[in-house]
């Protein structure tokens, strides 16, 4: 079985901020990546700075940003689940688990990236991470991919310990940076425009660690 990465996150930009560098490294080495994106982030409060989106235009704008970011990172295959932002935990889990299971069987990934249930802050992250792990655990033990779970809750290391996977992504910092900038409506507020260069400069502010390292916990499913 060749290598293939399957990424499962609920919001456009989750693939970039949490693991854009790691994915870029995989893409660079020729490993195909499929991304299941749960929602279009319709309920985000960032509208650009100065804001250029509104509640009704945000979904279309974020969908276009997502496609641009995927192109920057090297994600060739994007599957949109069509769920609605902030509602995943309230949906009937069964059809969603079935859909992910079906994609797992088609794609046969060697590695799955998703959120660590309970330690990923946003209720959509925790819910979709849990559904993804449920889908993986339906596969027979020998067919199960490795799972890299992304966690960033403040207390998470106290409970789940330190991450066992720490990737140095500095070699692809420019790629991650391009993906971050592609998510304009969401990133402008984090990286205020530098008036002199007219570009956003993530490297110069508090978020610069995001361009150096990305960490994951290998998730064991039973």
């Amino acid at each position: 079985m060749g290598q293939h990465i399957l990424v499962v996150f609920p919001h456009p930009d989750d693939e970039t901020f949490g693991c854009g560098g790691t994915l870029a490294l995989f893409a660079k080495s020729g490993i195909p990546i499929t991304y299941i994106c749960g929602t279009l982030g319709q309920m985000g409060r960032n509208m650009g700075n100065p804001f250029f989106a509104n509640r009704e235009t945000l979904s279309k704008i974020r969908e276009a940003e997502l496609e641009k970011a995927c192109k920057a990172i090297g994600i060739q295959h994007l599957i949109k689940l069509g769920l609605r932002d902030k509602t995943i935990e309230f949906e009937d889990p069964e059809p969603i688990v079935n859909r992910i299971e079906q994609i797992l069987r088609e794609v046969q990934p060697s590695l799955v990236l998703t959120h660590y249930p309970g330690y990923a802050v946003h209720p959509d992250h925790n819910a979709l991470g849990e559904l993804t792990i449920k889908a993986v655990s339906r596969l027979s033990t020998q067919d199960r991919p490795t799972i890299y779970a992304h966690a960033f809750a403040r207390n998470c290391q106290d409970v789940i310990g330190p991450p066992d996977i720490v990737n140095d992504i500095s070699a692809v910092a420019d790629v991650k940076c391009a993906a971050i900038l592609a998510h304009r409506s969401q990133s402008q507020v984090m990286f205020p425009r530098d008036n002199k260069t007219e570009v956003n400069e993530p490297t110069k502010n508090a978020y610069s660690h995001m361009l150096q390292r990305e960490s994951f916990w290998t998730y064991r499913c039973f």
Binding site: N46, R55, E56
Partner: peptide, 27 residues
């Protein structure tokens, strides 16, 4: 057929919205 009203903070982030429409808003 739509009126969108919103409150943004100094960084352009939406804090409140009140919208009216003759037709259902897109889901």
């Amino acid at each position: 057929g739509k009126l969108l009203l919103a409150g943004h903070d100094e960084e352009g982030r939406l804090a409140v919205a009140l919208e009216l429409s003759m037709e259902p808003f897109e889901l």
